[in-house]
Amino acid sequence: MKAVPKVNKEGLYLEDALVDDTFSGVVPFYSNMQQGILDVLTTTENVTQPEGEVPNDSESTISGYIIGIPVIPGLFRPRFDLEAWNAYEAGVSAAQDSFQQAMSKWQALPEEQRGDMPVLESPAQPTLWIEGLTPEEIEALTRPQPIEPDEMDRLGSEMVTRELEALELRQQNEAQGAQIVGLELRLLSLENS
Rank of each mutant, 00 (worst) to 15 (best):
N56E: 10
V92K: 14
T61G: 01
V47I: 07
T61H: 04
V181G: 00
G68M: 06
D81C: 01
V27Y: 02
L164M: 12
Q107L: 14
R114N: 02
T22R: 11
A94S: 11
Q145Y: 10
Q34C: 11
E174Q: 13
Q107R: 13
S63K: 05
D20A: 12
V19I: 10
D150I: 05
Q100W: 06
N86V: 10
S24T: 14
E112N: 05
Q145W: 05
Q176C: 02
T161R: 14
E165D: 14
A17R: 11
F29D: 05
W85H: 09
M152C: 05
G74D: 02
G74S: 06
L12A: 02
Y13N: 06
L14C: 09
Q125W: 01
E191C: 05
V27D: 03
D150H: 02
A17W: 09
T44H: 08
T42G: 14
A102N: 08
T127N: 08
D39G: 12
V19C: 09
E53T: 10
E137Y: 04
V92N: 06
F23G: 13
M117D: 10
G25D: 05
S31M: 04
G156T: 10
E158V: 08
K9E: 08
E184L: 15
R79Q: 12
P126A: 07
T42P: 04
Q171P: 00
S122L: 13
D21S: 08
P73C: 04
S24P: 01
D97G: 15
S193K: 11
N86D: 14
L18K: 12
L167T: 11
F80L: 06
S157Y: 06
A95T: 07
Q145K: 15
A95L: 09
R154P: 05
A108T: 02
I66H: 03
E139W: 03
L38D: 06
I72S: 03
I180V: 14
N8K: 04
L128E: 01
P5L: 07
F99T: 03
E53V: 14
D81L: 02
M103Y: 15
K9S: 08
A108Y: 02
E89R: 15
T42K: 02
I66K: 07
Q49Y: 07
S31K: 07
V160G: 05
A90V: 00
I180Q: 10
W85S: 06
S31T: 10
I67T: 05
V71K: 08
L164K: 14
Q35L: 15
G11R: 04
W106P: 04
P123N: 03
E131H: 07
Q172W: 06
G177M: 12
G11A: 03
L164W: 01
L109D: 08
I130Y: 01
A17T: 14
A124V: 11
S93L: 12
G68A: 11
P55D: 03
Q49G: 07
Q179C: 00
G177L: 10
R77N: 02
I147C: 03
V26E: 01
I66S: 07
N32Q: 13
E51D: 09
N8M: 02
K6D: 00
T61C: 00
A178T: 13
M33P: 01
K6S: 11
V7D: 05
Q113E: 13
G91F: 04
I37C: 04
V181C: 00
A102V: 00
D21E: 11
L185H: 06
R186M: 10
D21M: 04
D150S: 07
Q176K: 14
S58C: 01
M1C: 04
M159E: 12
